[in-house]
């Protein structure tokens, strides 16, 4: 992997690429399409205007972001915790794998949005149902990666540890767990972005705030400007989340490497 350094050329490229993107959008919406779809300027204007000052629905944009983030974070962390435990156990013990693998593999392809009717019946219309949907998104990705991570640990390491007299649980904690950290982190990152993408589905269960709600309310009123503002906000926050995550991971993985 080549080392990445920040430089002027990269910055210029970023500016050019975003400018081209907004330029195409601007030109594209000047013609016939413009009557139905707003160009970038009104969207950015609405975005800035509602960020702290103006309101969409009952709150400012930043409050909507906070609501959505809170839901996503709670669901994400619960899902990650359950997923890591289940995934590692499945990778480590063939018996546990035999029990849970078939169930997990059937549940995994079912998208959160298809769970909405069931979660309303089981959990209701409150916050819990929204968190449950986000939990599902996070749980599936993390379990999958922890499972394959723990399963793909080089058997030679395990044999070596066994030869040196390590017990089963000792092998789990000193060999399997450290070796599965990189794939788990990869899973955590994908899970974070997929949780963030699930917020829209989650807020389809009755809500009156959140970025998903902004888009849903926009859809209900044919307010393309509001929809695009919501999309822009989801994109920006998602971008920030993955950047932060990459930084954290870089740090933890460096620790991981030095330990090995």
């Amino acid at each position: 992997m080549k080392k990445k350094t920040f430089n002027i050329a990269e910055l210029i490229c970023a500016v050019i690429s975003l400018a081209v993107f907004f330029g195409i959008w601007h030109l594209g919406t000047r013609g016939e399409l413009g009557k139905l779809m707003p160009g970038p300027l009104p969207v950015i204007e609405k975005f800035l205007q509602t960020l702290f000052g103006g309101k969409i629905g009952s709150s400012t944009l930043i409050v909507h972001v906070a609501y959505s983030l809170a839901r996503v974070m709670i669901g994400y962390f619960i899902g990650a915790a359950v997923g890591i435990v289940l995934g590692l156990s499945m990778g480590w013990s063939p018996l546990i794998e035999a029990i849970f693998a078939p169930l997990f593999r059937i549940i995994r392809p079912i998208p959160p949005i298809a769970w909405i009717p069931i979660s309303i019946i089981w959990i209701g219309l409150g916050e819990d149902a929204k968190i449950f949907l986000i939990f599902l998104a996070s749980f599936c990705y993390v379990t999958q990666n922890a499972w394959s991570g723990a399963k793909n640990v080089n058997p030679e390491y395990m044999n070596a540890a066994r030869m040196l007299g390590a017990g089963k649980s000792r092998i789990l904690f000193t060999v399997v767990l450290p070796a599965s950290i990189p794939p788990i982190f990869a899973g955590l990152q994908v899970a974070l972005s997929s949780c963030w993408a699930t917020v829209l589905a989650a807020e389809m269960v009755r809500s009156s705030e959140g970025l998903g709600w902004i888009i849903i309310a926009g859809m209900n009123n044919n307010d393309m400007n509001q929809i695009m503002t919501g999309i822009l906000a989801i994109g920006l926050v998602g971008m920030m989340l993955s950047t932060i995550f990459r930084k954290v991971e870089a740090r933890l993985c460096r620790w991981n490497r030095s330990e090995n």
Partner: peptide, 17 residues
């Protein structure tokens, strides 16, 4: 460098949106 900024912006947006 040219593609990544737009890609990063678009990537987190769910298909449904």
């Amino acid at each position: 460098w040219l593609v990544r900024p737009v890609f990063d912006l678009i990537r987190p947006v769910p298909g449904l949106a």
